[in-house]
Amino acid sequence: MPEYHNDGADALPASKSQRKRDMDALQDIGRALTELPAAKLKKMNLDDGLLVALLDFQKITANGAKRRQLQYIGKLMRDIDPEPIEQQLAALRGDSSAHTRWLHLLERWRERLVEDDSHVQQLINDFPQLDVQQLRTMVRNARKEREESKPPKANRQLFQLLKELIPEQGKPANSGDEQDNTQDE
């Protein structure tokens, strides 16, 4: 079945060179995936066959075998939509503006929590599944660190808690809505 690229008025079959560029682009995405640790690969919702091929690639030591496995990964990539994978890779690299906005949102929440108890109560109301005692302890420790000019260990823990709690745009939500949380800024 020939691929068609509609660059002009008439739909022409893709040239051999264009198909090769497309396959190389998919193989490049596969190469980027091979550089990720196994734990991150497992979190990415990849096709099972692709995930196994990527994990196998990481076990291979011979250069020729690595090259063949990379070609196989590129072949598997032809059958899946690469767009979600590219978005996740961009987010991991920090290229994604949506990911950056989400990180800024988390940072604002952390600052508000440390500054004022009313925001702690608002977060508890927005996310009822939250462990209230753990949150209050983290906030109290973060405030104490700030007052004593200590390293921000509790601040980091609070950020990680928020990261698990507030979903990133386009990722499955635990509960709540990110848009509701940004309205009072």
Rank of each mutant, 00 (worst) to 15 (best):
Q122H: 12
R67W: 01
G74N: 04
E83L: 11
K171S: 12
A53L: 03
I85F: 00
R156N: 06
R78W: 07
R101W: 10
R101P: 07
T182W: 08
L36V: 02
E83V: 10
D95W: 02
N141S: 10
D24G: 15
L89E: 01
E178R: 15
N174L: 15
V52Y: 08
L161I: 02
P152V: 04
A98F: 11
A38V: 02
T137P: 11
R146Q: 15
Q71W: 07
R101V: 06
L70M: 08
A91H: 02
E115K: 14
Q129H: 12
K144T: 13
L70V: 01
V132C: 09
L50R: 00
R78M: 04
Q169N: 08
I29F: 03
A142T: 03
E107G: 13
A53D: 04
I85Q: 06
A62Y: 07
Q129K: 15
D7L: 15
N45R: 12
E147P: 13
Q160E: 15
L33G: 05
P82H: 00
F57D: 01
A173V: 04
D95A: 03
A32N: 05
R140A: 12
I73A: 03
P82E: 06
L158I: 07
E185C: 15
P167K: 00
K66R: 08
K66S: 05
N45H: 11
D126G: 14
E35Q: 09
L50S: 06
Q87E: 12
D24P: 14
V114K: 05
A91T: 05
D184R: 14
I73K: 05
H104N: 09
G8D: 10
I29V: 06
L36Q: 00
L106Q: 00
A154F: 05
K171N: 09
N125S: 14
H119S: 11
M77C: 03
H104Y: 13
Q18K: 13
L89Q: 02
D131T: 04
N181F: 14
K144R: 13
N141Y: 07
E115P: 11
S175E: 12
D180F: 09
A90Q: 00
A39M: 12
L54K: 01
R110M: 01
P2H: 02
Q134S: 11
K75S: 09
E111M: 14
L76P: 03
D24N: 15
G8P: 02
R136E: 07
L162P: 02
D48P: 10
M138I: 10
D126F: 07
A32R: 05
I80M: 00
A142C: 05
L161F: 02
Q27V: 05
K59N: 07
Q88H: 06
